[in-house]
Amino acid sequence: MSVDETTTARSTSLADVAHEPGAAKPDPILVADHVVRRFGGMTAVDVDHLEVQEGVITALIGPNGAGKTTFFNLLTGFDTPNTGEWTFQGRSLSGKSGAAVAKAGVVRTFQLTKALGRLTVLQNMLLASRDNPGENLWLSWLPFLWKKHEADSTEKAMEILARFKLDTKANDYAGSLSGGQRKLLEMARALMTDPTMIMLDEPMAGVNPALVQSLLGHVQALRDEGMTVLFVEHDMHAVRHISDWVVVMAEGRIVAEGPPSSVMKDEAVVDAYLGAHHDTDLGDDSLLDPAVLARYEAEEEER
């Protein structure tokens, strides 16, 4: 099957899905219900129902402070909700630790990058490899038990690093990488775990446009191999370019869902971003023009 055909297959799998918040999907891999997280008096996340379709790329967008990162933290066990439960592949993941969630196959990256500075780039990658017998204390002092696993992981790590243009940096300390390179390393490291589902928090922030193109292609290739991708991104062009489905959050709630072409024209979405009823499309280049934005802001003031 060619890539084009698979893409069509994916699109048709979502073709009958309603364009509304909390819409039911044909094969949901992740289902969240009534997830609420409050910080003091402020409700950061209040997601009533969300289903993420298996094997497609879902983008989670929304203005700053919408609660996207907090929602990620909750789903991946890095924060505890006030209420709510969610399942992955039918098994409950609520209340599980971050490590348990990762073991279940959901691996995430962080918006504020977490490169392990005083490990080399290659060590960062090897650390991510699963089921390494040498990570067991009792076996750790017997190298012949884990040398083979290390060699295999190194080969795989170098392949992934090459894809992320980091192979020449393999033996440098991760702390010496630039901001964008750290983002890349974190994504590469997450892929090293062979996740069933990968959750990326602004993976393209600070990455140069040429590399973004190639990485987007890579993410699509991963999807075509069967990986489920959920990513947060502010770059609307990236969202439009690769996502099969878009979920929009604003003030903690999911306000819209739909395919990228239509969701950006959705009134609720434009509202969430621009704060008023404008007849525009978020993917529209005119939004890059400061004059247009200023006009919208002025109109908003008048209201």
Binding site: T76, F78, S97, G98, A99, A102, K103, V107, R108, T109, F110, K114, A115, L116, G117, R118, L119, Q123, L126, L127, A128, R130, N132, G134, E135, N136, L137, S140, W141, P143, W146, E150, E186, R189, A190, T193
Partner: peptide, 27 residues
């Protein structure tokens, strides 16, 4: 012997950022 192994690498990872190590599925 134990620190030059993958086990020791996990310890160093924890020293650098334990959340990152947790996100990779290590306890």
């Amino acid at each position: 012997l134990i620190t030059r192994s993958p086990w020791g690498r996990v310890l160093k990872g924890i020293r650098e950022d334990e959340d990152a190590v947790r996100a990779l599925g290590k306890s």
